[in-house]
Design a protein around this nucleic acid. Structure first.
Lengths: 342, 342
DNA sequence: TTGTATGCGTTATCAT
DNA sequence: ATGATAACGCATACAA
């Protein structure tokens, strides 16, 4: 282990002055003699002094660290969001401790606890899928730990949240299928209903049909989850109906699910969009490279992360005002799978 | 800001005992009366006590935190590697502070400094591209800060390093083009030569030609950098030669560069692999989805991260032995762009 | 088994 | 402008 590190005390002894003067000189406080200051700075450099933030944090009761909890770091959305968080944090002089829950409630609880004991100044959470109850979040709020959810929110818990307007995005893309193409039987491969994303997208889908007085078929809503295999199986279920009951168009909860659906459709020798049109959600990097490029909805991941971090820092620094639920707009990426750009 | 947090002292006062007894009870030390212990634990739970690791770190001179510096978090390789790091860290009871340098030397220096002042127990670095000198790393080593490089190493500096055997991977894939296909004029779109990856892959490329007594043309080595546009322009340069001097096959330094090359080749109305065969490096998620699926070399990113973290933790805990340069093997992913699987 | 004194490295506060 | 002292929350060493 490192031989003893240089402390302010050593500098003080070396120069025959007090620790406080060293502290003041190094922190650019006004009340230090100019020459003393430069002698201190020189000595600090010469001895390889690196201030100990641990000690500083202990006395100041501030760490300038933000704890981040993501459910899965390889999800494509999250690396982008983390970059946004990192950027905003860096700008404001904060750093981040990154933890991930692996979509597991127990592990999420563990890392939140860790973050708390590490005395991070605030926490950014994107909820794990398996979390069924809000106890932990409520405890955090009771203890007044600054807390902002991002991407996956917890409605009505009274915490700030930055998310993507999934409902509007889903509604708009569904309306695209209705208004531009006039597809009658539209199906939805839905996400898990205990995740807000899953709920909102289904909601947007339904609203689009309702508001346009378009036929809604309960049988055409199948839960697919967020992965390719789920999309594949859900689509297979739809294709087991007799052909006249097949959907004319499909709104998938995300791109991976759409890829699975593509596979199922192709296996039935059906054409996209000729026989069945298809749209995804999330603008996965692979979407435009599919044999039939996938129409989808882009989520501003970087911006979500950045906004969430900015909001958290406001809260930490006491400029937060009331609870806010910030919702960022999505962007439609129209490609061939919906029937456009033939 | 959080109202004052409950400390061990409060628990002690509440129970009319000393802080030490509280500390011992909570840390499962043997010398505590069973009943006292359960009373302490009950009180801790009741009051919402969360131990303060800051204070603990200060006295123990250990944070159980690993600092991680990555050059770019959206690079596909890194999220995977970070997962490996996180996994190994979690297993050993460590956590990570993630920072990124944005491929910028100045920013890298800043975050390393931050990590050091945060008194992380050790640092994992993947070097930024613009770093020209090793001063900072040497200073860290002099201060005996446990340090392990991963992916992008610094040769001969005397630090541990976990990387992918780029040279062997590049050599093998080039030999594939030589031995299986017998392509004569083989070009290399190289990476920056001040990055170890760039150097090793060029080296492997050259060795394959040498050892097989295959013709080497200096003109057929063009620096492309790591991005698509670089690959595009480098390939254009090659295609400005008269047709008889065109390469018959191209080894790109990574997949994005290969994608750029593909674009340039297609723009000339040439066929892959018919006119020009092409291989990439890194198994980008898009590689298999290209119009002509790209033959490439997979790097074990997760394993690199995991091994690097494990190695760092060994070093931190004093079981490191001598300096080690661990090199993990790559895996060839043979697809159509090289001329196989027609 | 339990308690007391001391220190980790820094800063706030009150002196000088 | 500079210094002495106390405090942040906890653990080690020693005493009781």
């Amino acid at each position: 282990m490192s031989k003893k590190r240089v402390t302010a005390k050593e500098i003080a002894r070396e120069l025959g002055i007090s620790v406080m003067t060293v502290s003041r000189a190094l922190n650019n406080r006004p009340n230090v003699d100019a020459e003393t200051r430069s002698r201190v700075q020189e000595a600090a450099r010469r001895l390889g002094y690196v201030p100990n933030r641990i000690a500083k944090s202990l006395v100041l009761q501030r760490t300038h660290i933000i704890g981040v909890v993501v459910p899965e770091i390889t999800h494509s959305f999250f690396p982008e969001a983390i970059r946004g968080i990192e950027e905003a944090a860096f700008q404001a002089g904060y750093h981040i401790i990154l933890t991930h829950s692996s979509e597991d409630a127990t592990r999420e609880e563990e890392v939140i606890h860790l973050l708390e004991s590490q005395r991070v100044d605030g926490i950014l959470i994107s909820k794990a899928q398996t979390v069924e109850e809000n106890r932990i979040y409520q405890q955090l709020l009771e203890r007044k730990v600054p807390l902002v959810f991002f991407d996956r929110c917890v409605p009505g818990i009274g915490a700030d949240c930055v998310s993507v307007d999934d409902e509007a995005g889903a509604k708009r893309i569904t309306e695209h299928l209705i208004k531009i193409h006039g597809y009658q039987r539209i199906a939805h491969l839905s996400g898990p209903q205990h995740i807000s994303i899953g709920r909102s997208r289904l909601e947007g889908f339904k609203k689009a049909l309702q508001e346009n007085h378009w036929p809604f078929y309960q049988d055409l809503v199948v839960e697919a989850g967020f992965h390719e295999t789920g999309g594949y199986h859900a689509m297979k279920i739809l294709l087991e109906f007799p052909p006249e009951q097949w959907p004319r168009a499909v709104v998938a909860v995300n791109d991976p699910a759409a890829f699975g659906a593509m596979k199922a459709i192709r296996e039935m020798q059906l054409g996209i969009p000729g026989d069945i049109a298809l749209v995804g959600f999330s603008d996965d990097i692979r979407a435009e490279l599919m044999p039939v490029p996938l129409t989808t909805v882009r989520q501003p991941a970087y911006e979500v992360g950045k906004k969430a971090a900015e909001r958290l820092i406001e809260t930490i620094e006491g400029n937060s005002g009331q609870t806010l639920e910030i919702v960022l707009a999505t962007e439609q990426i129209i490609r061939r799978s919906c029937g456009c750009n033939p």
